[in-house]
Amino acid sequence: MDSEKQVGDSTADSVGHDCFETIAYCIPAIACRLALPFSQRHKSVPQSEQRLRAAKGKVRMAMLDANRIEAFLRHQLDMFNQGRRDDFIAAYREIAPGGLLIDDPVGSDRQEGLQLIGKLFDRYVGWKLTFVELIVNGHEAAACVRNEGVVNGHPVTVHSLETYHFGEGGTFLARYFHPAMSA
């Protein structure tokens, strides 16, 4: 079991978390926020989100069903792990024609756009990501992800909690909860 918690040496303990302990701690808070309507979860609405909301009426797209959402999430993970940057970005472009917003990490300034997905891909290229758990309900999903890579020359395993909201206007909000670190 210890090998799942860390890869390499004890440096991993300083940035890694046991996924299930993290879930037990974070899910109640996430669930409380997700129970609120989307507009109430984000009291101060950044300009980027205001633009996405304004575009909502211009982009006509049927709500995605749970199977399509799960297929997208698994596909983008596969494209990342295979190092297929263009296909990785294309998957986001297809799933979010109404715009993409990202909180990485949650609590930092919300960012928008496909260029950010490319930057995140480049920053973590070579890492291996694995869904420990993926749950899709309606047009939202939550996942616990095992992230294995190298930080400051040391192999590490870090678990993240990620939530995804797919809006009816083709918008997509991804929120990543993970320990602070630099890759």
Rank of each mutant, 00 (worst) to 15 (best):
E21L: 15
Q47A: 08
I30M: 07
D104Q: 05
V125M: 10
D86G: 00
S10N: 03
A183P: 15
H178P: 01
G118M: 02
A174L: 08
D104C: 03
G169M: 06
A141E: 00
Q47D: 13
G167K: 05
R175K: 15
F20P: 00
Q115W: 05
N137V: 12
S108I: 03
D13F: 14
D109R: 12
P105W: 12
A12V: 10
K56R: 06
H139Q: 14
D13K: 11
A71V: 01
N147R: 04
V158H: 10
A12N: 13
E148G: 00
S39A: 08
S182L: 13
E4T: 10
C144E: 10
R33N: 13
A29V: 05
A29K: 10
D2T: 14
G16K: 05
C144D: 07
P46R: 04
I117Q: 08
I95T: 07
R123I: 07
A24G: 15
L52V: 01
V7C: 04
D65F: 06
W127S: 07
Y92S: 03
V125R: 10
K56T: 06
G107V: 02
M79N: 14
C144F: 11
Y124K: 11
A91E: 01
P155L: 13
P97G: 14
Q40S: 10
F38Q: 07
K128A: 05
G16L: 06
K43A: 08
G170S: 11
V45G: 00
H17L: 13
A54F: 08
N137Q: 11
K5S: 11
E49L: 15
S39I: 02
V158T: 09
L34E: 07
I89E: 10
H139E: 14
I95A: 03
S39D: 09
H159F: 06
V145I: 14
H178I: 07
A54T: 08
G99T: 00
V136A: 04
E148L: 02
E94G: 02
F172N: 00
E162H: 07
R123G: 05
E148V: 04
G170D: 02
Q76S: 08
I27V: 01
F72Y: 07
L120I: 14
Q82F: 12
E49K: 13
E112T: 14
A55G: 03
D78E: 12
V59A: 02
I27L: 01
P46S: 03
V150I: 15
A62F: 05
C32K: 06
H154M: 02
A66K: 06
A141D: 01
F80C: 02
V45I: 12
F38P: 12
L161T: 00
N152E: 09
L64M: 15
L101C: 15
I135N: 07
F131M: 00
A180P: 05
G16N: 10
A180E: 09
A91C: 09
N67W: 00
